[in-house]
Design a protein around this nucleic acid. Structure first.
Lengths: 254, 254
DNA sequence: TTAGCAAAGTGTATATTTTACACTATCTTA
DNA sequence: TAAGATAGTGTAAAATATACACTTTGCTAA
């Protein structure tokens, strides 16, 4: 991106060409009266793989942040809803469009972006990492363990941390975690996921007790395969039942 | 400053004669397509008076919403931080600058504002209603019981409800309520406040037990005056102690 | 084939937290 | 000085959260 300052435009003021002058005046007034503020959407895309919570990052192409990793984002198109802009980012980067998405906070420090005043609305998203593995590992785009995320470009470190904290809080209030898992999973998978998100160890028996009490798990009468030990039963998540109970839902505690 | 994508400019690289005009046209189109989004900040200002939770509203001056009430807001100045913009609204409308302020959510439906695409960052604020009573009741600006807030202009009803829900959640996690009270208050005042915010009745003994256990109340060794019954003791809130304990704070439940 | 391994699956006792509830004390007003 | 009104106080029961160990099952390798 290139930054055009008002003074650069004003230099052309004496141009004889009427059209140009007129154009300049329009631009000048647009710039002055409308806003010199650009709006973007950034998305912290979480995935879960090899029992680790991951986040999708890309290398910044701005020279100011050469080589640093950054979140995935884009400028907002004037005709797009905010959520739509976030979905577009997800579609573009992962090919998925059925994902969990939540707006977290808007970041607008005056100097957060070297290209000018850019205010960004931050979202986080939960996706099933398996469903799009082929789409990435190209273009400097890849998954990173959340535990190793540091020194991101722009103010993206702060955005990442805010979103991660929000996720940690949310999974204790609502059973969102399922968006990160395959449709069939064992209770061990589920516990591994929660341990990865929260960064703590959980008691296995109490964990099972809690999830069965919630009554959102459907016993598929299937078992794991290719495990070198007794296989666990497989479950799926009953989204409909959850939607019904959602209103009265007061939370889970770990 | 205006942000223009470089690729748009490069398209005209070879042009010699009309370079300026073409470039400007591109800039203009960028302005139109990229940047026709205005940014505002809206603030749900809460107060507490006569044992009711109140919100500060103003009559809309837009003809589309003639006579309807709306939240207090303003366009964001390009050189202001987001929080600063919210503080400015508070200063302008209440004269106060030491208030509790929290960003809640950004609302950006394409048609939410009849004047064009305006995206607004919503805050809520807690103020001590006594401190500025003289500043308002002018200019169609006044306090309204939260229970009676309906049919606000724009999408302000939705914004109000989102902010009110956030407040209800927050006061159960952190002792924010004190911002709404005078510096000296009785436990009955405090309970009235929480009952007003949450919209429920609370058990008096359990309420007292909970707040004393928190250990943020300072016994001032003073009592209420001008009450037609046994006066209650007065307390103040120990902000410093709260700040210290904040990190480990896990919440209050009612 | 079978012994050993590794994780699945299961229940109970204790501690902690939350809830429900009623009487005495103190100040004001008549 | 009696009556009215709210302040102030403690305990028992219920619900919830925690801590903890043995048996079962399927897989693997000798």
């Amino acid at each position: 991106m290139l930054v055009v300052t008002r003074s650069a435009l004003l230099k052309n003021k004496d141009n004889k060409n009427n059209k140009t002058v007129k154009t300049l005046k329009i631009i000048q007034s647009e710039v002055e009266s409308l806003n010199k503020i650009a709006l973007s959407v950034d998305c912290v895309i979480f995935g879960f793989d090899e029992n680790k919570l991951k986040v999708l990052l890309i290398r910044s192409d701005l020279k100011e942040y050469k080589g640093r990793l950054s979140l995935l984002g884009d400028l907002l198109s004037p005709n797009d809803e905010l959520d739509k802009a976030a979905y577009k980012i997800l579609k573009k980067r992962t090919g998925l469009d059925d994902v969990y998405l939540e707006q977290v906070q808007t970041f607008g420090k005056v100097n957060r972006h070297p290209g000018g005043r850019v205010i960004t609305v931050a979202y986080y998203s939960l996706i099933n990492i398996m469903h799009h593995k082929l789409k990435i590992r190209e273009n400097e785009l890849d998954w990173h363990d959340v535990s190793g995320v540091k020194n991101l470009a722009f103010d993206h470190q702060e955005i990442f941390e805010t979103c991660y904290q929000r996720l940690q809080k949310r999974v204790q209030e609502h059973p969102l975690g399922f968006s990160l898992l395959p449709s069939k999973f064992s209770l061990r998978d589920l516990q591994n996921l929660y341990e990865a998100i929260l960064g703590i160890k959980l008691d296995r028996r109490n964990f099972r007790k809690k999830f069965f009490a919630m009554d959102f798990l459907v016993d598929l009468n299937e078992i794991e395969t290719n495990v070198p030990h007794r296989p666990g039963k497989l479950y799926s998540f009953d989204y409909d039942k959850y939607e019904q109970k959602k209103k009265k839902w007061s939370g889970i505690d770990f």
